[in-house]
Design a protein around this nucleic acid. Structure first.
Length: 415
DNA sequence: TCTGGGGTCCTAGGACCC
DNA sequence: TCTGGGGTCCTAGGACCC
């Protein structure tokens, strides 16, 4: 029988830091968001201190000092690189995987013997730990939602949980809807209002009532928790629907040239990813936003444009983004964040190039050369326009670890 | 003083047409 | 005094995820 699996890295950002700081295993560690604003990853020890995900750093700084918590600014370059290494090992052993986030992938597995399947996953878990150094959890079940639940369940145990439909249904009255993937605060409140709190409640309700009350959402959730694998959605997506790059500034700015510089950076980042995924974008939006905790919340915003011809050319995209941003920009408004979203993404099909003629061929070669150099020398070594991170708007990262794996100057030292 | 960034999917409601 | 209603398309925004 075919099962769906979820492979999940434990406390991923924290684990990445620990790989290069083995002294921190079993010690409390956190990773902060960009600008050192909020907590985005916590080790088990920090979770036990009762520090929730997403709290602003300044609110818990005292607790951290008292408990000698090791604090890291986020080092996304390192995490992306470690993620690629993990995913490579998984793909090698499992075949096709569907990467769901930086630290999770779904996969399929044909299970004939449950014990054998479990052994395989234990072995895979150990392989990743040896080759990359990251601890993982695996869940295997008839549907994605159940697989996710299974992987969570064994996170602090053996790290592998295979859950059959029978086992799932047997414990359905113990599983709260609010614990499920895809059920957040708003939805669990709505469920409670209708007297539905456990998976069993949902399964014993009249399906037509669920669909009437909760629409498409209810229908999908019902299919997922019923454990009927034939109704679980397909596991593979090729291209993302959109690619975005946005970031807040450490200080607000009213200066359009500073915004333009930030937008140039975001366009080059997003376009690089687009090219890496072999896609072209048919829609582009520019965002310039104000501080959402200030009186300027309602000012600023975004504007989007459909492109006459889908492209992944940084220069064409940038021209459009700057035009859009100028339309949104108002002098005197303090902007806190800028970003770019690429949409209507389609595969960069063969033959499309000829539509543009010689110029496009030139551009394509240029883009390839830039991406190649950046991969070789280090990210952002070569940029277009003024796309480098500069002090005027770039982020704060007082506690960033070295870029051990992606920057020649920051390799780990062995002594 | 300081509150992430990158995604997906769905729905309500406005604009427009007949 | 009367001031439709049904379709379609688009966008903003909500909810959720990591």
């Amino acid at each position: 029988m075919e099962y769906v699996g979820l492979a999940d890295c434990n406390n991923f950002f924290v684990s990445c830091e620990r790989v290069f700081r083995p002294d921190l295993w079993n010690k409390p560690v956190v990773v902060l968001s960009s600008n050192d604003g909020a907590i985005v990853a916590r080790s088990e020890e920090v979770k036990k201190l009762g520090v929730p995900m997403g709290v602003p750093y300044f609110k818990v700084r005292d607790v951290f000092e008292k408990n000698q918590v090791a604090v890291f600014s986020s080092n996304y370059e390192l995490y992306r690189d470690m993620s690629n290494r993990v995913m490579e090992v998984l793909a090698e052993e499992l075949g096709e995987i569907e990467q769901y986030s930086v630290d999770e992938s779904f996969f399929r597995m044909d299970v004939k013997d449950i014990a054998v399947a479990e052994q395989e996953l234990f072995w895979l878990r150990e392989t990743v730990r040896k080759q990359v150094g990251i601890p993982m959890s695996f869940g295997l079940a008839p549907t994605k939602t159940i697989a996710k639940y299974a992987s969570e369940k064994e996170k602090r145990g053996s790290g592998v949980c295979l859950m059959t439909k029978e086992e799932w249904l047997k414990q359905a009255d113990q599983v709260l809807l609010s614990e499920l993937w895809g059920v957040g605060g708003a939805m669990s409140q709505k469920f409670r209002a209708q007297g539905l709190s456990s998976v069993k409640d949902l399964l014993s309700a009249d399906p037509s009532r669920i669909e009437r009350l909760y629409g498409v959402y209810g229908k999908k959730l019902l299919a997922e928790v019923s454990g009927d694998q034939s109704r679980s959605q397909s596991i593979h997506d090729d291209l993302p629907k959109s690619i975005m790059s946005t970031r807040g500034f450490s200080k607000t700015t009213t200066d359009f040239s500073v915004l333009a510089e930030a937008l140039a950076y975001h366009v080059s980042k997003a376009a690089e990813e687009l090219r890496e995924k072999k896609g072209v974008a048919g829609k582009v939006s520019a965002l310039i936003l104000t501080n959402r905790h200030s009186d300027w919340v309602l000012r600023g915003g975004g504007k989007e444009a459909i492109l006459p011809q889908a492209t992944n050319d940084t220069r064409l995209l940038l021209k459009e983004v700057l035009r859009l941003a100028k339309e949104v920009y108002e002098p005197g408004v303090p902007y806190k964040k800028a970003g770019v979203v690429l949409g209507f993404i389609k595969p960069d099909s063969v033959g499309q190039v000829s539509l543009f003629g010689e110029d496009a061929m030139e551009n394509e070669r240029l883009m390839e050369a830039i991406d190649g150099l950046n991969k070789k020398i280090g990210p952002d070594s070569v940029t277009i326009g003024r796309a480098k991170l500069k002090s005027g708007w770039s982020n704060r990262h007082d506690h960033r670890s070295p870029r051990y794996t992606t920057s020649w100057n920051e390799l780990p030292r062995v002594s």
